[in-house]
Amino acid sequence: MAVHAHDHTEHAGEDLLNAARRTLTDAGEQWTGMRQSVFEELASHEKPASAYDIADNLSRSRGKRVAPNSVYRILDLFVRTNLANRIESANAYLVNTHPGCRHDCIFVICDDCGKATHLDDERVTGALRSAGQDAGFADVRPVVELRGLCQRCVA
């Protein structure tokens, strides 16, 4: 069962784009055309997408090569500003549908189809954060990923 210590609003479509733009500019960063393109491409994926997937798709749609390194830099900015989450085990990214809302997530990833779902359970991530702080670390950010089979793939 997911435990929410706070309320947050899930955004979609144009509302998600506007929330992302607002979050990025509130963080003192510029919302450029390329950043918007990367965000829109990432948001179009239901499963985690790699920087190479995004670069390839943008290269096709723009008619000119988009370098994966440029996409990586933008995705790293998105992770730092809470517009995207990185799925460490897949070296891929998911759009954050509630930009500006900071909390830890637990990702459950299907080993068969690649679907990733995030859960909020601050009992788990809070305990991990406390353990890191007890070990003398500051600004601890739990990254929790569980692997298994989703309901569709198990059927």
Rank of each mutant, 00 (worst) to 15 (best):
V71S: 09
D134M: 14
N82G: 05
E29S: 10
A49M: 10
R60F: 09
T97K: 05
I109T: 14
K47L: 12
R86A: 04
A127Y: 11
Q30R: 08
S59Y: 02
V108H: 06
R80Q: 08
D56T: 15
E145L: 13
P142H: 13
Q36E: 11
T9L: 06
T117M: 15
L17H: 05
L146E: 07
L128F: 13
C101V: 01
F137T: 12
R35Q: 07
H45L: 06
R35L: 11
N82A: 11
A135V: 14
C101L: 01
L16M: 00
I87W: 07
Y72V: 03
I109V: 15
N57M: 09
G136V: 07
A138K: 04
V108K: 13
E40V: 03
A92P: 14
R73T: 04
V108S: 15
A27Y: 03
N82K: 04
V71M: 09
C153H: 11
D139E: 10
Y93E: 05
S59Q: 06
R21L: 10
R152M: 01
A12T: 01
G33F: 06
T97V: 13
S44D: 08
L42N: 04
C110E: 15
L128R: 10
H118Y: 11
F137N: 05
A27G: 11
L42M: 06
K47P: 07
H8N: 08
K64N: 12
H98R: 01
A92R: 10
V108E: 15
R123D: 15
C153L: 14
C110I: 14
C110V: 14
H4A: 15
A55I: 14
V154T: 03
L146G: 09
D15L: 13
S130C: 06
A131E: 05
D112W: 00
A19S: 01
A116M: 13
A12G: 05
L75W: 07
G132M: 08
Y72Q: 01
R21W: 00
H103C: 03
V3L: 09
P99S: 14
T81K: 10
